[in-house]
Amino acid sequence: MLKYLRKALSIGLLALAGGAHAEITEDYKVILLTENFPPFNMAIDEKNFARDENIDGISADLTRAIFKRAGIGYNLSLRFPWDRIYRLTLDKPNYGLFSTTYTEERKPLFKWVGPLAKSEWVLLAAPGSSIKLNSLKEAAKYTIGAYKNDAVSQHLEAQGMTPINSLRDQENVAKLMSGKIDLWATTDPVGRYIAKQEGASGLQVALRFNSAELYLALNKETPDEVVERLQKALDELRAEGYVDEITNSYL
């Protein structure tokens, strides 16, 4: 009896080991989602929906190269708003989202590949503003606009602040220029890029309060093999100088 129990246990362990290292099928694909977040990812025609070759930017070009190097299929689309595609990636297996800011709060929610790029978190004031800050605590008395479910907005909320969240970050430019908000919480260089697109210039940095890394966030049910192959591909491309080459071509 003991002999048969040992044999059954051995077979069970082999099955588990096989499952842990099972290869993904040839038709496996990751459904990649992104948004207009220039210069990291953006629609060529600046609209809020685009597919595949109609999307460019630092992270978009790099992500394509990573998947090609890793030999993993994907479908890529740019959609709006961020809040929707963020929740889709949280909920649906085989979904991925970039450029996603890596934070401790988000760490357990996804599987991660990166970093793809870096950015800084800033509070921007209107041209001619006299607002100068030394800390986020000092900013609490001002009206702050932010982008809903963006990492910057989530960080401010975690600090007990109540930013006025918009579904489109572009809306914050108009609000700032018209005085509806005192400060715009965004990332650099994204904020400056968006402001230029909206015809605004001369915005002032009232405070730089964090630096962040941008990643590809994958649904937690993504096979570990996929994550490992993608990370290995990124590491190889970085070592070959490709990441710097792509970044410099946009900045």
Rank of each mutant, 00 (worst) to 15 (best):
M1K: 09
L2W: 13
Y4C: 07
L5H: 14
L5S: 14
S10C: 14
I11M: 10
G12R: 11
L14P: 04
L16W: 12
G19R: 04
A20K: 11
A22S: 15
E23V: 07
T25M: 09
E26Y: 01
K29E: 15
I31L: 11
T34Y: 02
F37S: 13
F37P: 07
F37C: 08
P38E: 09
I44D: 13
N48T: 09
F49H: 07
F49K: 09
E53M: 08
I55N: 02
G57W: 01
D61K: 15
L62V: 00
L62Q: 04
L62W: 00
T63S: 09
R64Q: 11
F67H: 00
K68N: 02
R69K: 15
A70D: 08
A70Q: 00
I72M: 07
Y74F: 15
Y74R: 12
N75F: 08
N75L: 13
L76E: 07
R79D: 12
F80L: 07
P81A: 09
W82M: 08
R84H: 06
R84I: 06
Y86I: 03
Y86C: 10
T89K: 05
P93I: 02
N94H: 14
L97W: 00
L97P: 02
F98G: 00
S99A: 10
T101G: 03
T101Q: 04
Y102M: 10
Y102C: 01
T103H: 12
E104H: 05
E105F: 07
E105V: 01
R106A: 14
K107Q: 12
P108D: 06
P108H: 07
L109K: 13
K111I: 01
V113T: 00
A117W: 00
S119W: 00
S119V: 11
E120T: 08
E120N: 13
L123W: 06
L123G: 03
L123E: 02
A126C: 10
P127A: 12
S129G: 14
S130E: 14
I131T: 11
K132P: 05
K137P: 11
E138G: 03
A139L: 11
K141C: 12
Y142I: 00
I144K: 04
I144N: 02
K148E: 14
V152G: 05
H155W: 15
L156C: 04
E157K: 15
E157Q: 15
E157R: 14
A158M: 12
Q159I: 03
N165I: 10
N165A: 15
R168V: 02
D169Y: 10
Q170G: 03
A174Y: 03
K175Q: 15
M177Q: 10
K180T: 14
I181Y: 01
L183G: 00
W184T: 01
T186E: 01
T186D: 08
T187R: 06
D188T: 14
P189I: 04
V190W: 00
G191Y: 05
A195C: 13
E198M: 14
L203W: 02
A206R: 04
L207E: 06
L207P: 03
R208K: 15
A212F: 05
E213L: 03
E213R: 06
L214T: 02
L216M: 12
L216H: 06
L218C: 08
N219C: 10
N219T: 08
N219F: 11
N219V: 06
T222Y: 00
D224Q: 15
E225D: 05
V227F: 04
K232E: 14
K232C: 04
L234C: 06
D235G: 02
E236N: 07
A239C: 10
Y242D: 01
D244A: 03
I246M: 06
